[in-house]
């Protein structure tokens, strides 16, 4: 799933596709080719493109004025701010953690390595609602640290820290999962060479490891960010749904929808969709960049 691996695979596929098409013996008849293409395109249009278009269509149904009004509403702005703040904290945290975990797992042997890999995957297998409830049980007023937190006037649940925690939890595996196979495939020879040549540990990481993984890392960060901004379930449990204070964009969409403000709900949803499209654009840019790097490497 790593960026460079997947772009490499893509390149290989394209090459073999050209080869197949060029040879009459392996070329599929036209109707097979077009019906397969037709099925996948129809599926794409009906299940992905149409809903996306519908979001923007519904958002603009009451005109540009209403659209802008919905987006500049103070609660919507607060939700946008909170969503960005949450991603701004959760993504760097998981970036540091992901690199550290992938580094440890790929480059070192230690007992319990498999347990660590399994634990990193835990947030993928646990329902987000449970993820939220875990924090309520630990930090809630009736939870383990509840009275201590109240005594020190610290608020975690139903406040920004709880939302950040829940988001960190659900986005935990993205970076590490992206890097581990990549780093394992690259092996440790280059690092060993650097160390033998006298580089310090930090220098080895900075000059050898990081350049090798940077596109995979960026890809992981992008996925992590997309999920951090879009998470609903876990955040819903710990949010308390206070308008203008603990509502993220996805929660705000639900509230607006439930208040019969359908156009406004879709307007805010379109904002989330735009953030997602923007993320996707960066992702394809990163992928194409990774591809040229690979091609350059092949030619040199």
């Amino acid at each position: 799933m790593a960026a460079s691996a997947s772009t490499g695979a893509l390149r290989a596929q394209r090459d073999s596709a050209t080869r197949f098409e060029a040879n009459a013996a392996t070329r599929e008849s036209a109707w097979v080719k077009w019906s397969v293409l037709g099925v996948s395109l129809t599926f794409f249009v009906v299940f992905l493109l149409l809903p996306l278009v519908a979001v923007f269509f519904e958002a603009l149904r009451k005109g540009m004025q209403a659209y802008l009004a919905a987006l500049s509403d103070s609660d919507a702005l607060a939700a946008l701010r909170l969503t960005l703040l949450t991603a701004f904290i959760a993504v760097p945290l998981n970036l540091v953690f992901g690199v550290a975990a992938a580094w440890a797992i790929a480059k070192f042997d230690f007992p319990g390595k498999h347990i660590l890999i399994t634990l990193i995957d835990l947030p993928f297998s646990v329902s987000p609602v449970i993820a939220g409830l875990i924090y309520v049980l630990v930090f809630g007023a009736q939870g383990w640290f509840g009275s201590w937190l109240a005594g020190h006037d610290l608020k975690i649940i139903f406040a920004v820290p709880g939302i950040v925690l829940a988001t960190v939890f659900v986005t935990f595996p993205f970076v590490a999962r992206e890097l581990i196979p990549l780093m394992q495939a690259q092996g440790k020879e280059e690092e060993e060479a650097a160390i033998v040549l006298g580089a310090s540990g930090f220098k080895t990481f900075w000059r050898v490891t990081l350049p090798n993984i940077k596109w995979g890392l960026l890809y992981g960060v992008i996925l992590c960010n997309a999920r951090a901004m879009g998470e609903f379930g876990a955040v819903s449990v710990v949010s308390g749904h206070i308008r203008g204070e603990t509502n993220t964009l996805p929660l705000h969409v639900e509230i607006l929808y439930n208040e019969y403000s359908f156009a406004a709900a879709f307007a805010v949803a379109s904002l989330l969709a735009l953030l997602a499209l923007f993320t996707l654009a960066i992702k394809s840019y990163v992928e194409s960049k990774a591809r040229t790097v690979l091609v350059d490497a092949d030619h040199s």
Partner: peptide, 8 residues
């Protein structure tokens, strides 16, 4: 439930 759990 949320108020019991600490929603102020």
């Amino acid at each position: 439930r949320a108020v019991i759990d600490g929603l102020e």
